[in-house]
């Protein structure tokens, strides 16, 4: 395990990811300005390195005079909160269902796995669009929608991992000791299948960031004026000819974060769980 910290394929993306997490956690302290407060005098300032740039606004300002850097920092908080919540919800529900399916077997397993197949065969992004339109853009909704997209993959993996250890001696021992099936699943199976599921979660981080950004870009994600990377790109799109940085900067933030998370996920999967490394990924 220690050798992992000497592998540059893990350390470099790991450091970038950690940096992003810190930025998200410390957003209010780090952001130089209020991300929502605009001012007409400072509208559409270019980044500091350009001719008319202002050192106070390092990455410039948007059409309402809001500081891009501050919005970007708060956007990190939004994006990563969505990631954390969605993965927590989808991961725990999906894993729990998967473990139950694998351990209990029989009809329960058949039904649950049918449901998983079904969930995997629906274009969930379309449901997300409907949801967004019906219930309006909302932080809670977006978390629920993304959880709906992701749970089935966790269920599938938790089941197959459970099947691998279901008949091992220590489970038999627990069973003959008269332990309740729920207790067996929580105390003996869950800790043993957690490893690959955590790697799967790492691999999903980038996917979640991109789904969230896409939904926000389409106007069914995090509602304005809350700064989300996707909606910043959507707003900047109209100014691409005259003020390209409004679009370029939040996109780069997404690219760097997702790239780091994907590289980290790949490297972790390769070291901890080679089977997972074969997935092509998906949005």
């Amino acid at each position: 395990m220690l050798s992992m910290f000497r592998n540059p394929a893990i350390v470099i993306p790991g450091a970038v990811s950690l940096f992003m997490v810190c930025v998200a956690l410390l957003a209010p302290a780090l952001a130089p300005f209020d991300p929502l407060a605009g001012s007409l005098e400072t509208r559409l300032l270019p980044p500091a390195w350009e001719a008319n740039g202002d050192m106070a606004h390092l990455l410039g300002t948007d059409r309402m005079g809001r500081d891009v850097l501050s919005r970007l920092i708060h956007g990190a908080k939004i994006s990563l909160s969505v990631v954390a919540l969605a993965l927590l919800i989808a991961g725990s529900i999906g894993s729990a269902l998967g473990i139950v399916a694998g351990y209990v077997g029989g009809l329960t397993e058949a039904l649950l796995m049918r449901l998983v197949d079904l969930a995997l065969s629906l274009p969930i992004i379309l449901i997300a669009l409907l949801f967004g339109v019906v219930f309006g853009p909302d932080f809670g909704n977006i978390v629920i929608i993304i959880s709906l997209v992701l749970w089935s993959q966790f269920a599938r993996m938790a089941r197959s991992e459970t099947l691998k250890i279901k008949n091992s001696e220590f489970i038999d021992l627990a069973r003959t000791a008269g332990l309740h099936p729920i207790a067996i699943m929580i105390r003996h199976i869950a800790p043993n299948v957690a490893g690959p599921l955590i790697v799967l979660a790492t691999l999903q981080v980038g996917t979640v960031i991109i789904i969230e950004a896409s939904l926000s870009f389409l106007g069914v994600g995090v509602p304005p004026p809350t700064p989300a990377w996707g909606s910043m790109i959507a707003e900047g799109r109209s100014y691409i000819v005259s003020e390209p940085w409004l679009c370029v900067i939040p996109g780069l933030a997404i690219l760097v974060t997702v790239l780091a998370m994907n590289m980290l996920g790949d490297a972790l999967a390769e070291t901890l769980n080679p089977e997972l490394a074969r997935r092509p990924g998906g949005h």
Binding site: G206, I210, A213, S214, F217, G230, I233, R237, I240, V241, P244, C247, V248, P250, G251, I254, L255, V258, L259, N262, M263, D266, P280, G281
Partner: peptide, 22 residues
């Protein structure tokens, strides 16, 4: 492959448009 899977496509579209058209 890695970059292709990490870039948000709507942003990529805007960037390509900016570069090749604008």
């Amino acid at each position: 492959a890695l970059i292709g899977q990490s870039v948000p496509i709507f942003w990529l579209g805007i960037m390509l448009m900016y570069l090749f058209s604008v």
